[in-house]
Write a protein that binds this DNA or RNA. Structure first.
Lengths: 143, 143
DNA sequence: CGTTATTATGACATCCACTTTCAACTGGAG
DNA sequence: CTCCAGTTGAAAGTGGATGTCATAATAACG
């Protein structure tokens, strides 16, 4: 799966005439082996630990590239930072965000999706994408 | 209904030992007689037209007060601006956001809410609030 | 292999939407 | 009317995202 995403990215790169560089390799590796939902800052700090010479701007630009290539998606959870999550082919899910510890879980629910489509249809609205986030206390924090 | 909200706000103010001022009156009036989902900037410009002496910071602070008083709610729709919408007692609704014209419609759906609670419960998660936004083309923009 | 035309990088500057600061200015209780 | 806590507006400060630009690196070509 890491392999698959790397291929998607290199294909994207060559198709766009972009170059492969050490920095991009490092950032991609680091991204793929991270928690889902990392902010730019978090990824930058993580990378800087081993590669002090990679700048914030490069991480920032590279994450944008990942998003364009379709292997990452920008997300906003209201903490003022843009987070990037991993994306698989056509996969979609929603989020449970813990307001105490900040942990983020994912879930999927067919029925909800279907109801959304129905609601939209009844208004003549055509859905392109949606976001559903449930904020509250996770199992751990409720104890 | 405007009356009711004004009362909620004045009650909130006196309870907190806050003062009633001309500026706050103007801002509240303007807010209540506006579109739902106004950004600070939009409200500020609207107000400035008639009251050039009211500053951005005051509008900003006053909207925060409205939110604390429970008559407004902060919202983020991903356009980089915080918007404030009107809130009625315990009322809740979700949004249909048109990605072309920016219009925002509201909807409610009991079944979706219930399913959300179920999903959360099955993970031991306790929901405090949620956000559900459907992005796409509104009826008008599809034509 | 060198050369060369691009593209990439990183330090720094800038932008932008708030958010805070602070001196001057009220409300309104006494 | 006095006085003080609460307010205001202009301006400065923040923090994250984004743009700039001289320098460096890649990869295609000779």
């Amino acid at each position: 799966m890491k392999r698959a995403k790397k291929k998607v990215f290199t294909d994207f790169m060559s198709q766009r005439g972009l170059k492969s560089t050490k920095q991009r390799d490092v950032i991609l590796d680091s991204f793929l082996s991270s928690d889902r939902h990392l902010s730019i800052e978090e990824l930058y700090l993580k990378i800087r630990a081993k590669h002090p010479n990679i700048g914030y701007a490069t991480v920032y630009r590279t994450l944008k590239l990942f998003a364009e290539a379709g292997i990452a998606r920008e997300m906003q959870f209201g903490d003022g930072q843009t987070r990037y999550e991993h994306v698989g082919e056509g996969e979609h899910h929603d989020h449970l965000v813990c307001t105490r510890c900040g942990s983020i879980e994912e879930f999927e629910n067919e029925t909800i999706e279907k109801l959304q489509t129905e609601v939209a249809a009844s208004r003549g609205f055509l859905i392109e994408r949606h976001r559903l986030e449930l904020y509250g206390l996770c199992g751990n924090c409720r104890k």
